[in-house]
């Protein structure tokens, strides 16, 4: 069965390693924090200026001055720090953040990503996404394999305005885990009960299937 959003987040949480500073985007990526093993040390960075983000506050304890990049009220963990926006992006641009997890509308087989604009329709802006994808070495995209019309989001070439070029290395969807290299999506794992055939049908870009593809363990 294809994964739901929590399932995708659970699988991505396994990519978070001890000692990592991690930047989580809005949407499915935010859920990843809920599933990170509690026996490892990880700090979550939010680009509006906090390192060491904690869970949402209890009702009545929210503070207007302490929010995440999604403008939600948050708390901080012991050892947390606050800083200005330029310092925040020094952490990102300077590659001090080890892992970036973000959503996308489209990903191409060469690692291009589009997630900020639908011409004539949606004009919200790129926020910090362009800085994140241009700088991070370790980027995981969390998204559904197809859009609401059932069309593949893993393409030969992005049709929407790009956020970054040749930057995505890994994609985790409701159907599969894929690695991007040598201008192709390499199938690494299938969601439980999902066949290679189903993944092939939902992938417009070049899909490389090498040998037996294991099911994800989540």
């Amino acid at each position: 069965m294809a994964l739901d959003k929590n399932g995708i987040a659970k699988r991505i949480a396994k990519e978070v390693k001890n000692g990592y500073y991690v930047n989580l985007g809005i949407g499915i990526p935010t859920l990843v924090a809920n599933f990170v093993r509690d026996d490892i040390e990880v700090e979550f960075q939010s680009e509006n200026g906090v390192l060491g983000m904690g869970p949402f506050p209890f009702d009545g304890e929210e503070d207007a001055d302490i929010i995440n990049a999604g403008k939600q009220t948050i708390t901080t963990m012991p050892g947390a720090s606050f800083f200005d926006s330029a310092t925040s992006f020094s952490m990102i641009r300077g590659k001090h953040v080890h892992l970036t997890i973000l959503g996308a509308m489209e990903v191409a087989e060469n690692g291009d990503i589009a997630n900020w604009k639908i011409p004539g329709k949606m004009v919200k802006g790129m926020g910090g996404a362009m800085d994140l994808v241009a700088s991070a070495d370790n980027i995981i995209v969390a998204m559904m394999h197809t859009n609401k019309r059932g069309e593949s989001k893993l393409l030969k070439k992005c049709s929407l305005p790009l956020t970054g070029v040749g930057c995505v290395t890994k994609v985790v969807t409701n159907l599969a885990v894929l690695e991007i290299k040598e201008n192709a999506f390499h199938l690494l794992e299938r969601a439980p009960g999902v066949s290679v055939e189903e993944i092939k049908n939902a992938t417009e870009g070049t899909l490389i299937v090498n040998g037996e593809i294991p099911e994800m363990k989540i």
């Binding site: 680009e47 330029a86 992006f89 802006g125 910090g128 800085d131």
Partner: peptide, 20 residues
């Protein structure tokens, strides 16, 4: 913005901070 009354220059957040 869509009607053209407002001119908008969307700038990546880290670039915006660094331009300041």
């Amino acid at each position: 913005m869509l009607s053209g009354e407002l001119e908008v220059e969307l700038t990546p957040q880290g670039t915006l901070a660094e331009k300041c």
